[in-house]
Simulated scan of single mutants.
Amino acid sequence: MENNNINQRRKPNNKGTKRLFKNPMLEKMTRTHISVPISLLLAYAAGMLIWAIYRTNVPVSNSVALYFLGLFSFTFVEYALHRFVYHMRATTERQRKIQYTMHGVHHEFPKDKDRLALPPVISLSIATALLFLLRLVIGDYTFGFLSGFVTGYSLYLFMHYIMHAYPPPKNFMKKLWVYHSIHHYKDETVYYGVSSPLWDFVFGTVYK
């Protein structure tokens, strides 16, 4: 019987790490300190918001509204990517290898702090690609929207990191730690939202 579930194949190891590539350059690119992508992405987002306000004809109020729309939109994209891409139903060995490289290694070694974010060069490349693509569709409205979207990704990286690196706080935020722990240690088919559990409740992917 084929196993399509990452955690069915490998149990979490909270103290370990694993080499993914024999090539040292490729292996190095899979690791990054969390402060590097967060700092670069927040600077990127700030630059786009400043551009939206001072270098376009879009009203400031509209740019601010688009910023928050982008921030909210990221929570859905985060959920969808985590559920349908990172936890895709791998049916071939190649798909399983891709899945493991993208996300399975994180499930096997959830406390490996250097692998809690995409390498900065990949994150910035994706953000820049989105910038060009969205400009073709919505023009100057892109800057406000994408600024919020990238900020959302930065907040996700921060939340994901502290959930794995620190114990839960003694306040309402504790539930986010609990949900993510359930995803990692009990049932990986629930709680795909990290920065927000909203879409898990909307689509019913909560722990029964």
Rank of each mutant, 00 (worst) to 15 (best):
M159L: 12
H107E: 09
Y153V: 08
V137L: 15
V58T: 09
L116G: 11
T101V: 12
L131A: 10
V150S: 11
I98P: 00
I53Y: 11
L71V: 01
L155H: 06
Y86P: 00
V150C: 06
A80P: 04
Y156I: 00
P59Q: 05
G104D: 02
K113M: 13
P59K: 03
A117H: 06
L136F: 12
K111C: 14
L49N: 00
L146N: 10
T151Y: 08
L155E: 04
G148P: 03
I126F: 13
L157H: 07
G152P: 08
W51R: 08
Y86N: 12
N62Q: 14
T91M: 04
S147N: 05
P59L: 08
Y141G: 15
T151P: 00
V64D: 06
A46E: 01
G139H: 03
F84R: 14
S123E: 07
L133N: 09
H103M: 09
A46R: 03
I122R: 05
T75C: 02
T151C: 14
T101C: 10
H160Q: 11
T56A: 01
V77H: 04
F84P: 07
G148Q: 05
H82W: 12
P110T: 13
M159K: 14
L124V: 13
L81V: 15
I138R: 02
V105F: 12
L155F: 04
K113Q: 11
I53S: 01
A129E: 09
P120A: 00
V105E: 04
A46M: 06
Y156A: 02
L134C: 06
G70R: 01
F76K: 04
R83E: 04
G104I: 12
V105Y: 10
F84E: 09
R83S: 05
Q99N: 05
V105D: 11
N62D: 09
F68V: 01
